[in-house]
């Protein structure tokens, strides 16, 4: 159990370093939903290549690591109705709120942004309620 916390801390350090690199070199906030969303709705404009490059790294490197030695299984539900509803909620929600776990959580809280902190409090509360409702009350996950 405790080794998993250490992996969490180490992996978190890499996530924060990725955000630090994107900020200090490219001058941008590393928010996954903004980077993806801007490409989906076309608002990325001339930044599209920079964002696409980020996503290529995000997709390819875990794929290579998973092929070789790192344990990998998402254990995601195979219920496609549930997973589709979840995906829609995450897509609409993160774009309405202008950020997700990386943008509001990691990048926002680290600069004491009230919006980042408030967003994080609300998505964690809603996430907790969601698990209670769908797992313990309705039993669908």
């Amino acid at each position: 159990m405790q080794t998993e916390w250490l992996w969490g801390l180490a992996g978190g350090g890499l996530i924060g370093s990725a955000g630090a690199l994107y900020l200090l070199v490219n001058g941008r906030i590393m928010g996954a939903s903004g980077i993806i969303g801007g490409l989906v709705d076309g608002s990325a404009g001339s930044q599209w290549a920079e964002r696409a490059s980020f996503l290529v790294g995000l997709f390819v490197v875990p794929a290579l690591l998973a092929l070789t030695f790192v344990a990998h299984d998402t254990h995601a539900t195979s219920n496609l109705v549930v997973i589709s509803a979840a995906g829609l909620l995450v897509g609409v929600g993160t774009r309405l709120a202008n950020g997700c776990t990386s943008g509001h959580g990691v990048c926002g809280i680290s600069r004491l942004s009230v919006r980042g902190l408030a967003a994080t409090v609300f998505y964690i509360l809603a996430g907790g309620l969601s698990v209670v409702l769908f797992r313990h009350v309705l039993g669908v996950i």
Binding site: A85, A86, L89, V90, R95, A97, C100, F122, Y123, S130
Partner: peptide, 15 residues
């Protein structure tokens, strides 16, 4: 937006 996102995050465990 954050409430909707959180609901989906809890439902699937993915962000």
């Amino acid at each position: 937006g954050s409430v909707l996102f959180g609901m989906g995050w809890g439902l699937a465990g993915l962000c």
